[in-house]
């Protein structure tokens, strides 16, 4: 059941310049999984729409969620000032999330499935919960995370669940270039890809995946977040079963899509 509900900030950290980490106690944690997101409301009555932020973590007791976000404007600026004990209004849990069961079927049966997780910039946080869920499901996880420069975040935590590689645009850490440059440089082999990041990166990944299945997490401007307004669509390869046109709603039919199913 989706809800609009009050959560309570348990902790707030700054992970890198402009990147913040909130742990929020909320009943939404009970149903949350990797790839899903919540809408976070501002307290500013002029900025009405919920801000979509991905689930970066779900606590083991399923009582709190973790959101890692970049200050990008009015709303995220406000959220960066939240402190322990503050209330925060959430809409959730939204979106489909990654299909772990399907990912488990994508290898050959003798060896564990090898999932390659690619995160770029603010696409890194949702990959963390996914690496945790997949490794718990017996999937071999390889994470390649891309950053602008040496201001990396969450890397140590990826190492708990996966073989972890890094790329940076300026070459200050790991491979110089993007995540695909790092995949090639390290000769990484894989059965499927899960990716979140800026559109040019996702386009390159769709092309790179070739015959292999790639799941990509998309972003679009949203209003309702629940599939009612048709604001957040992506063009699809086939007629969508809900809309009956070649358009799917990112907030409900996604944000995770098989790359071959969407025209990006």
């Amino acid at each position: 059941m989706k809800k609009k509900t009050e959560g309570r900030v348990l902790s707030r950290k700054c992970l890198a310049p402009g990147i913040f980490d909130l742990e929020i106690e909320t009943c939404l944690a009970a149903d949350a999984k990797a790839g899903q997101f919540v809408g976070v409301y501002t307290k500013d009555a002029s900025a009405l729409l919920p801000r979509p932020i991905s689930i970066c973590g779900v606590s083991d007791d399923k009582k709190s969620i973790r959101l890692v976000y970049r200050v990008a404007g009015k709303g995220t600026e406000e959220f960066s000032h939240l402190k322990e004990g503050d209330d925060v209004t959430l809409l959730g849990v939204l979106g489909n999330g990654y299909d772990t069961e399907k990912i488990k079927t994508l290898g050959n049966s003798d060896t564990p499935v090898r999932a390659l997780l690619l995160g770029g910039g603010i696409g890194v946080p949702p990959m963390l919960e996914l690496s945790k869920e997949l490794s718990a499901a017996g999937v071999k996880v390889i994470s390649v995370m891309g950053y602008r420069n040496s201001d990396t975040f969450l890397l140590d935590e990826f190492k708990k669940y996966s073989d972890t590689y890094v790329a940076s645009e300026d070459g200050s850490v790991g491979t110089k270039g993007n995540v695909l440059d790092a995949v090639r440089e390290n000769g990484i082999d894989f059965d499927c890809i899960c990716a979140c990041g800026p559109m040019p990166m996702l386009r390159a990944i769709k092309e790179f995946a070739g015959e292999k299945t790639a799941f990509i997490s998309l972003e679009e401007r949203m209003a309702c977040g629940v599939g009612a307004c048709l604001g957040c669509v992506v063009k699809t390869a086939h007629e969508d079963p809900h809309s009956h046109v070649k358009n799917a709603r990112i907030c409900t039919d996604g944000p995770v899509f098989e790359a071959s199913e969407v025209e990006i």
Binding site: L49, R221, L230, G231, C232, V233, V245, K246
Partner: peptide, 13 residues
């Protein structure tokens, strides 16, 4: 008949 609607972005605050 079905209408595909406009290109995105379709909404803004």
């Amino acid at each position: 008949v079905p209408w595909p609607g406009n290109p995105t972005p379709r909404v803004c605050e």
